[in-house]
Deep mutational scan, measured.
Amino acid sequence: TGIVNVSSSLNVRSSASTSSKVIGSLSGNTKVTIVGEEGAFYKIEYKGSHGYVAAEYI
């Protein structure tokens, strides 16, 4: 489990890349469940599926 540490919002992406499609966003202080790690990204549970967020902001 981690907490989103941004002042505005954090993009949730379809894969572990900044060039991948943005599938949603999370606001600051949102609690997320981390299920894996790929490079600089965490794989998280997101809306019944999975998404990827930049690990530096969690």
Results as ranks from 00 to 15, higher is better:
S19K: 12
N5V: 12
S49P: 01
E37F: 14
T1L: 11
S17E: 08
K47E: 13
Y46M: 03
H50N: 06
A16P: 14
E45C: 13
N29P: 06
S20Q: 02
S20Y: 07
A55P: 02
S17L: 07
T1Y: 14
K31Q: 12
V32G: 01
L26E: 00
K21W: 07
V22S: 06
G24N: 01
Y57D: 08
E56P: 04
T30E: 12
E56K: 13
V53W: 00
N11F: 10
G39S: 05
K31I: 15
L10G: 03
Y42A: 04
E45P: 04
G24P: 00
G24Y: 04
S15G: 12
I44E: 02
S15C: 11
G28Y: 13
I44V: 06
A40S: 10
N29M: 11
A16R: 04
I44M: 01
V53Y: 02
S14T: 08
I44D: 02
T1N: 09
T18D: 13
V35K: 05
E56F: 08
H50A: 07
G2M: 08
S27L: 13
L26M: 05
A55F: 08
T33R: 11
S9W: 11
S8V: 12
S8W: 12
S8P: 13
V12I: 07
F41W: 14
T30V: 09
S25F: 13
K21C: 10
G28W: 13
S27E: 13
G2S: 05
Y57F: 13
E45Y: 08
S9Q: 11
S49G: 15
V22C: 08
L10S: 03
S19Q: 11
N5S: 09
S7F: 08
S15L: 09
S8G: 15
S17I: 06
I58S: 01
E38Q: 08
K43P: 02
S8I: 12
E37G: 07
A55T: 10
N11S: 13
T1I: 14
G36Q: 06
Y46S: 00
G28T: 12
S20M: 03
K47Q: 13
A40W: 07
A54K: 14
Y52F: 10
K31A: 10
T33Q: 09
K43F: 05
T1M: 12
V12G: 01
I3T: 09
V12Y: 00
S8A: 10
S27W: 09
I58K: 02
T33M: 09
S27C: 15
Y57T: 05
N5E: 06
F41Q: 02
S49F: 10
V35P: 01
V4R: 04
A54Q: 15
A16T: 06
S8R: 13
I23Y: 01
L26R: 01
I44C: 05
T18K: 13
G39V: 03
G48P: 03
I3S: 06
I34C: 04
K21E: 12
S19M: 10
K47V: 06
V6W: 06
G24E: 01
I23L: 09
G39F: 05
A55G: 05
G48Q: 07
F41S: 03
S19E: 12
I34K: 01
R13E: 02
A40T: 09
S17V: 05
S27R: 14
Y46Q: 00
K31S: 09
V32E: 00
L26K: 00
L10V: 15
V22R: 04
R13H: 15
S19N: 13
G39R: 05
T1R: 10
T33E: 06
S9G: 14
K21A: 13
S9E: 10
E37Q: 15
S7E: 10
I23W: 02
F41M: 04
K43Y: 07
V12A: 01
S19L: 11
V4G: 04
L26D: 00
R13T: 12
I58P: 02
S8E: 12
K21L: 10
V35E: 04
E37T: 15
K43A: 05
G24K: 01
T33C: 15
S14A: 15
V6R: 09
A40Q: 11
E37M: 15
I34D: 00
G24M: 05
G39M: 04
K31P: 09
L26I: 13
A16M: 04
E38G: 02
G2L: 07
I34W: 04
I58W: 03
I23P: 00
Y42H: 04
Y46L: 03
T30K: 05
S20K: 02
T33V: 13
T33H: 09
H50M: 09
G24L: 03
S25W: 14
G48H: 06
E45Q: 08
L10P: 07
T18Y: 14
K43V: 11
N5G: 06
G24Q: 02
S27Q: 14
S15M: 10
T30I: 08
G39N: 09
I3Y: 15
T1E: 11
Y52W: 12
A54W: 15
E38D: 09
Y46F: 13
G36N: 06
K43M: 10
G24H: 02
N11T: 13
S8D: 12
K31L: 13
S9N: 10
S7Q: 11
K43D: 03
E38F: 10
E45S: 07
S20L: 02
A54S: 10
G28F: 14
K43L: 10
G24C: 08
E37V: 15
S49Q: 12
Y42F: 10
E45N: 07
A54R: 13
A16I: 05
T33F: 10
V12S: 01
S20C: 06
E37P: 05
Y52P: 00
N29C: 15
A40G: 14
A54E: 15
G51Y: 04
K31H: 11
V32Q: 00
Y46W: 11
V53C: 03
S25R: 14
S49L: 11
S49E: 09
I58R: 00
A40E: 14
A54Y: 13
K21Q: 10
S15Q: 12
S8C: 15
E38W: 07
T18L: 14
S27F: 10
S25D: 06
S25P: 03
H50Q: 06
T33I: 14
R13L: 15
S14H: 10
A54F: 14
G2Y: 08
S15N: 09
A54G: 07
K43E: 07
K47S: 08
